[in-house]
Design a protein around this nucleic acid. Structure first.
Lengths: 223, 223
DNA sequence: TGAATAATATGAGATATCTCATATTTTCGA
DNA sequence: TCGAAAATATGAGATATCTCATATTATTCA
């Protein structure tokens, strides 16, 4: 992890204004952090000292269960907050957040800004919107996961993440995210290939029959 | 649904102050609504005209999937907001909310208060906290539902909802909430009885072996 | 009060998903 | 560049969960 200093920090701040997020001046004590792929932005179970706002990159939120099973809870990308739960709640079990690409974020030290943030309508309004969108997405995903078999959810996931007709997510990530076993994921992928919805090309899968996948995924949408 | 008028409204407002929720005066245009068991506070798919704050009672949030399957998404009780999603987001699929007991809430008309609410730090701070807690609970429930079989989740649910050692939730509600079929729920309940964790008494179940259930539920908690 | 509706109950077979064992291939750091 | 670790792959049997069919109570309401 690198903390931008002096000139480097100044330049980054100049080129990436986040004044629109706050009703007051934050420049003085704000930091700019850069994390490499694989680095932990927050360690599971340890409260962070900063409120982060992600500018570039992507990360994943994980939680470890008592039985050792690890769940990927969600993806984080540009314009997401990190540490907002800890800002708002004194009692909160901190999830682990790991950068999955190089990730740059602004970091506001709690000890310095907590009081001001909690009284700033502009900030609170932005955060509220962020939280409500997050809650909505999560609710949708949750009720889907209970109501539909992997076949439908995977079709949706493939269409969402495929790039130019090519699906190339890591299986391990996907089973975490969709909450199924590795074995079963492969099984359903094979079915898709057998049915000619996909065609395997080395590590990747090319979408052959878009419509069939779309039909499977469509079932997830309510109305 | 009854809207309290005149004297009745005045008395209710006097006895139940919610001044602490807002940084400005809301008395003038606020309404007090009372819903009977079974009544819909919000119809699925129809945007509400009010922001509600629940004072008494309990309700359930439902969503209907395209395949006709209905999921119970969550419970609502005193001190919860309703309609906050619609206040914050112009685009939002409204879930259905049905009172499960007599429910009384304050109702603030959007057309009158929207602008002021979105600029009121006190209100936004309360709402933000509410949303963050909500998001946390949902996240926990979600990752649990994927990582553990019904046995564990049901044990937890029974301990949470049992009243003086007696569990008496309606099966239908529970399968909605836990996202399993009616048949399977009964199957696992029968197992609990066979193992002497529970003892069936007419419609209800008495908790016999608290410890065993606790052990099953404990597995859900992370650390 | 009686009929309609909701809730509870149970069996049996089907399917979705998991666990475990094991092999091969790829990636990546020392 | 070599070896460890990560990722992919596949089989086989176990288990969790679903669907459907069908009865039997409760509850509600006209």
């Amino acid at each position: 992890m690198e903390v931008y200093k002096d000139e480097k920090k100044r330049i980054y701040l100049e080129n990436n204004s986040i004044a629109y997020l706050f009703g007051f001046q934050v420049d003085e004590f704000i930091e700019v952090h850069e994390y490499q792929r694989g680095e932990w932005i927050i360690q599971e179970g340890m409260r962070p000292d900063f409120l982060f706002y992600v500018m570039e990159g992507a990360a994943k939120i994980y939680i470890t269960h008592q039985n050792g099973k690890v769940s990927l809870i969600n993806f984080i990308s540009a314009n997401d907050y990190i540490g907002e739960m800890e800002l708002l709640n004194d009692v909160y079990y901190t999830k682990g957040i790991q950068a999955s690409t190089k990730t740059i974020c602004f970091a506001l030290p709690f000890y310095r800004y907590r009081t001001q943030l909690m009284e700033d309508a502009k900030f609170l309004r932005e955060l509220t919107k962020f939280l409500s969108v997050k809650a909505t997405l999560r609710a949708a995903k949750y009720s889907q996961s209970l109501a539909f078999p992997l076949e439908n959810r995977l079709a949706d996931f493939i269409l969402q993440t495929a790039d130019e007709g090519i699906y190339k997510e890591k299986h391990i990530t996907v089973c975490d995210y969709l909450g199924v076993s590795y074995r079963h994921l492969l099984h359903v992928l094979k079915q898709f290939c057998d049915k000619n919805y996909l065609q395997k090309e080395g590590r990747n899968y090319q979408i052959i029959h878009y419509d069939s996948l779309y039909k499977l995924a469509e079932v997830l949408k309510h109305n």
